[in-house]
């Protein structure tokens, strides 16, 4: 176990050490990549096309990117630094600053090389995202012996701020009239009441039958198949037990009764009336099991 001060001291030892030595661009500066960049960013500057085209200066860093196949020339020191930060819980990364100087334009055919040095590692800082250390690197990008530009880049390696612990969902309201339903759910069964006089299934649970007034009833286990009858996407106000936006659906069961629930298997914005669903059960915390509806079609 290291104290913060120990860690900071070890991090500071990386200042001045190389992060990349004699890295080379994965591709020479080329028109197709320039064109893709301009297309993505909506940049129609004529300087970036035609026989005398130059690369947009702000592409400087793009030519040094490792892409999916990884960086070239990266030093062990840089990996060690990042590893040390990871081990200290600073597992997340976000780029915060980019300072570029453009000494000469890059043109198609230019083959770049680059050297990166770890300029500075900050003390532990607390930010809105969490607490961590800023790491600043400076990269010199060359074409042959000529400096084409420099690129100073600052990232924050941080431990995401702990989110306040999520309170449990509102509990079902259990009383003598409906306890059987919630006991069924605990046993992963969806139980419907059925009037023994007129055989009408019913939900919500009540001590008597609205169809005939009969007070006697038994239960049947629902098939668990249903369709979305209607739904709501909740945005506001934010309830701490839920993460808005979220969908709440009214499910019409094959047996003809309806009950409310959450739909899984599609994002909140893809819930639609008529979607076929099947019941599953989810434990939300020690005390609460709830039915949940998985989209099946």
């Amino acid at each position: 176990m290291h104290t913060d001060e120990d860690l900071t001291e070890r991090l500071k030892a990386f200042e001045g050490r190389p992060a990349a030595t004699e890295g080379t661009g994965k591709d020479p500066v080329n028109l197709p990549m320039i064109r893709h960049w301009c297309e993505a960013l909506g940049d129609t500057n004529p300087a970036y096309s035609g026989p005398d085209a130059i690369a947009p200066p702000t592409m400087l860093q793009a030519w040094t990117m490792g892409g999916l196949s990884g960086h070239t020339g990266r030093s062990a020191a840089y990996d060690e630094l990042l590893g040390l930060l990871d081990a200290a819980g600073c597992t997340s990364v976000v780029a915060t600053d980019c300072e570029q100087e453009y000494d000469r334009p890059l043109r198609p055919g230019d083959e770049i090389t680059f050297d990166t040095v770890i300029e500075s590692v900050s003390d532990r800082k607390t930010t809105k995202l969490g607490s961590g250390h800023f790491v600043t690197t400076r990269t010199d990008i060359r074409v042959g012996p000529d400096l084409a530009g420099t690129h100073r880049f600052r990232i924050l390696k941080y431990a995401p701020a702990a989110r306040p612990e999520k309170p449990p969902r509102p509990r079902p309201v259990v009383n003598r009239d409906n306890a059987g339903f919630w006991e069924g759910v605990r046993d992963r069964k969806l139980l419907l009441q059925r009037c023994t006089a007129c055989a009408a299934p019913r939900h919500p649970w009540l001590p008597g039958c609205n169809a005939c007034g009969g007070l006697d009833w038994d239960t049947v286990e629902a098939s668990g198949e249903g369709t979305v009858y209607s739904y709501v996407v909740m945005h506001h106000p934010p309830f701490p037990a839920f993460d808005p936006p979220y969908a709440v659906a009214l499910i019409e069961l094959a047996e003809g009764v309806r009950m409310l629930g959450n739909v899984i298997g599609v994002p909140y914005d893809k819930v639609r009336i008529g979607l076929p669903v099947r019941v599953e059960f989810r434990e939300h915390d020690d005390e609460s099991t709830l039915p949940v509806w998985r989209v099946t079609g």
């Binding site: 909506g42 940049d43 200066p57 702000t58 780029a95 980019c98 570029q100 453009y102």
Partner: peptide, 29 residues
């Protein structure tokens, strides 16, 4: 950040025209 950087660059050269040359650009997100 690279896209943001590029968009800022585009904003400037859209305004100042193709003969303007960007020498330095420093941004913070």
């Amino acid at each position: 950040i690279l896209t943001t950087n590029g968009l800022v660059g585009r904003y400037l050269t859209d305004h100042f025209g193709p003969t303007a040359v960007l020498r330095k650009l420093s941004i913070r997100l």
